[in-house]
Design a protein around this nucleic acid. Structure first.
Lengths: 355, 355
DNA sequence: CTGAAAGCGCTAACAG
DNA sequence: CTGTTAGCGCTTTCAG
């Protein structure tokens, strides 16, 4: 705090850095505010004499002028801010996703506002606040898994610039999803390629959109190879480690046992692996395990997991591009990230069947 | 897009949800804007008759009125937005940190704007933009590791509401750090408690503030136990997996070998573990490894890592509380998260020395 | 108890 | 080429 600024010149200021306004620059340069405004934003060519222009530029420079965000936003009715709303910041997939969102946003001149879906508050509330109050120009939204997309769509004003990730709401919002079908297929094909024929699926909950599609990919691969996806070779217990353990116990009770398992989610795979060790089942000698990897949590398991890596960075990136496009043209699209394709990373949890 | 809205009624609107203004509510309720404003924000008691009040409330409700963020921000010179700026969104510790930031921000009526420190652009640029343009009221800032805090402090306007995490700039900005000293000490004490005496440290770069302090903790524990922290038992190579491998090779070349290693960072620990396996060194039979865990990346290594968990959630939470406090009172503080203390999680990478 | 009016900082017509 | 003016939507004195 400088000496005696209780006078009033500074009244009403926040404690933050002193705000230089356009008119102060104008005063210093001896011109009008609008002249300064024009020059500083480089509006419609140079309709200002070079000297004045220079005078303005130096004045702004010396005063360290910064345009006020709120004033601009009010005037333009745009904030150049995008909201990223997810149910759970702890989720590891989120990091990669957010990274993609951030990169794309920055590339298009946007910044990212974080939102979290509170379990206790209705999902609409966040959306209404962010979009309705004009805090953001658009929203990248991941609905909580298990929430019916159709129900969510009801809540969504179709005029709102929202792009859903990992779920769809046709005609209501744009969407971007990773190639879950391809992920399930690729993992399964890998086991088939190794010579496995009794291949099980440890799937997610039937209500989960991602789980449904990974399952579909699995079944497609099986049928394409002339194998029959038997119902008793499928569990649909969920994505937690404990549910993975449970899936293993259930599948290992079969006779004959499957020789390979495709796990639809990495946490479940970790649990499944741990349970296998607990039961004395040798992976990959007796049992091959391939997982659809929705995070990099598990790059250091033992044995290291063979996994199909989903493209979450690309999903975040694409979501923002789609959103920016929507903001510009109003176009609504539903996209699936097919390029890059889900990436098979072969590690040590898979091998040819023992005999 | 609806039929013919080129008319002009909607001109200048964004494509987003239609904005209901105060004056529209006022019109509907048959009162003035200021009346509506007062009632809607519950300003200074009820200086409005119950009937008008009710009329206003229902009008606002029916119109689904939402206060415009930009207008409020402009008027109040506050945005109720806090910036979280970090060098690397990919870093796993970041998730936990961000979670703490988000929770505390929400609890205090703030939302969080994400910022990233571009390697190519100067760090000041981000700060100037966020704070200088009034996009955020305050900043939680993690300087890039290796940047001299003193240099950063130079760039920092001391009037700016900034709280540094994982570094300090006394008198320039507030700061919050995790208890790195305690982390280093706890990991070392654990090995001492198991009976180890030849304990090495695989440390981070000497320029890193966290590395310095973890090292200090290590040495304190050694001296307290009457052990001598020998210089050749210390590496200071860095935090990457490859540098961890390198540290192991270097330390295992000693004669006699150390029987325990404290690793200052989890990525290095993972690399170190992998290298041990490659060299045929049995962990924990021949060598105990304890790490200071700055993320949960490695909960599934083999063998599972004994680790001292740092309190990043608390750091993020505290940083925001500190920031909010600073915004209110102008007070600058330097805090270390001592409660909760770094948490020792014993797994399978540590055991008593073999003989 | 209620309304009119000024102004936050900026932009975009519209005049000179 | 440059300046004046009228808002963007909201809050806040200050009159009525």
């Amino acid at each position: 705090m400088s000496a005696d600024d209780e006078a009033g010149a500074d009244r009403g200021r926040t404690s933050a850095t002193a705000a230089v306004t356009l008119s102060e620059v104008a005063a210093k340069a001896g011109v009008s505010v609008s002249a300064v405004s024009k020059v500083l934003r480089g509006t419609t060519a140079i309709r200002v004499s070079p000297e004045t222009r220079q005078r303005i530029l130096t004045a702004a420079e010396e005063l360290r002028y910064r345009p006020n965000f709120a004033a601009r936003a009010l005037q333009a009715a745009r904030t150049q801010v995008l909201g990223l709303v997810v149910p759970d910041l702890t989720n590891a997939l989120f990091t990669e996703l957010m990274h993609g969102v951030e990169d794309a946003a920055a590339a298009h001149g946007y910044t990212v506002l974080l939102g979290r879906l509170d379990t206790d508050r209705p999902q609409t509330e966040v959306i209404a606040r962010l979009l309705g109050e004009g805090r953001v120009d658009g929203l990248v939204l991941q609905a909580t898994d298990g929430v019916d997309p159709a129900a969510l769509a009801q809540l969504l004003d179709p005029r709102a610039a929202v792009v859903l990730i990992n779920s769809v709401a046709p005609g209501r919002a744009s969407s971007v999803t990773v190639d879950d079908v391809g992920g399930g297929r690729t993992a399964t094909e890998h086991l088939i390629g190794l010579g496995h024929t009794r291949i099980a699926l440890a799937g997610g909950l039937p209500t989960s959109y991602t789980a449904q599609r990974r399952r579909r990919g699995h079944q497609e691969a099986m049928r394409a190879a002339g194998l029959d996806p038997r119902a008793d070779h499928e569990t649909a217990l969920g994505y937690t480690a404990e549910q993975g353990r449970q899936a293993l116990r259930q599948l290992m009770a079969l006779d004959p046992r499957p020789t390979g398992i495709v796990v639809a989610n990495v946490n479940a795979a970790i649990g499944l692996l741990a349970e296998a060790r607990a039961l004395g089942i040798d992976v990959p000698r007796e049992l091959s395990v391939a997982t659809v990897l929705d995070s990099w949590t598990a790059e250091n398991t033992w044995p290291p997991l063979t996994a199909v890596k989903m493209q979450f960075y690309a999903m975040g990136h694409t979501a923002v591009v789609s959103l920016v496009h929507r903001l510009g043209s109003g176009a609504m699209t539903d996209e699936v990230i097919l390029d890059p394709a889900p990436e098979l990373v072969v590690r040590e949890s898979t091998a040819p069947p023992s005999s």
